[in-house]
Write a protein that binds this DNA or RNA. Structure first.
Lengths: 133, 133
DNA sequence: CCGCATCCTGCACGATACTG
DNA sequence: CAGTATCGTGCAGGATGCGG
């Protein structure tokens, strides 16, 4: 959760607000965690969904990770979790405005990837070629 | 390295080019890996740097992780590694244009974090409060 | 249907020691 | 100085089973 509380000597990498730094890192880490990005996409494209519907749309995810990821997202205010008191239980998840805006913030990265896909792959082949040689 | 090659049934989360998908995920994963983002920042702010200089500016990093992270960045074309054939060895790392532009692509996320820091923290406190109760 | 608890496994990463 | 090699460990995450 919290980022390294270690002291930074004068000559470290910058004087950014450590709270922003920590949040940015948390956020990127969460979005990078293999599932969050996909869940944002699913909830964005299909709107409010119940647990099992989401699971169906994300092949390969275990319910443990689905629960866990949704909980973190809820904690960060990215989704709201609505429990309908019926039997059998029905729980629905909806992306908040905050969640939508986070997805949009990452659009820049998607665009970058589209624009530079070839460049990166070329760089990788070059590197791997040199390594083999 | 490669992302889950598993088949996606018709009702999965979207029809995006899987190569883009994989690259975006690789990228976000790398940037999230605790050090890459910091190294981009250091190299951006201070220009070309040699190995030990970078290490000094990033307290807490082990040389193993510094080497490893820089190698991945090099492989992806984000930095160039220049070996000066002198004794003692002198190796310098410089952010490429590609690396700079990736940093800029993530600016949107930084901005988002600055804009929504309070909202996220409030959401977290709310969630944690409810959990405790 | 939803989700928690438990167990198990692999990998990421730090520490340490050694080379050109 | 700038690495590589080896070892130890903690934790992320899958599988399974139970509970409301």
């Amino acid at each position: 959760m919290a980022t390294d509380p270690q002291m930074r000597s004068p000559e470290t990498y910058g004087e950014i607000d450590p709270r922003i730094e920590a949040l940015v890192h948390d956020l990127i880490a969460q979005v990078a965690d293999k599932w969050t990005m996909i869940l944002i996409e699913v909830l964005h494209d299909h709107g409010e969904q119940r647990f099992t519907r989401i699971a169906e749309k994300v092949p390969g995810i275990s319910q443990k990770m689905l629960t866990q990821t949704l909980r973190q997202m809820e904690r960060n205010g990215l989704v709201v979790r609505t429990i309908h008191p019926v039997v059998p239980p029905k729980v629905e998840y909806r992306l908040t405005d905050l969640g939508v805006s986070l997805g949009e913030a990452f659009c820049g990265v998607w665009t970058w990837a589209e624009d530079h896909l070839e460049t990166v792959e070329t760089a990788r082949r070059g590197f791997d070629g040199r390594a083999t040689a």
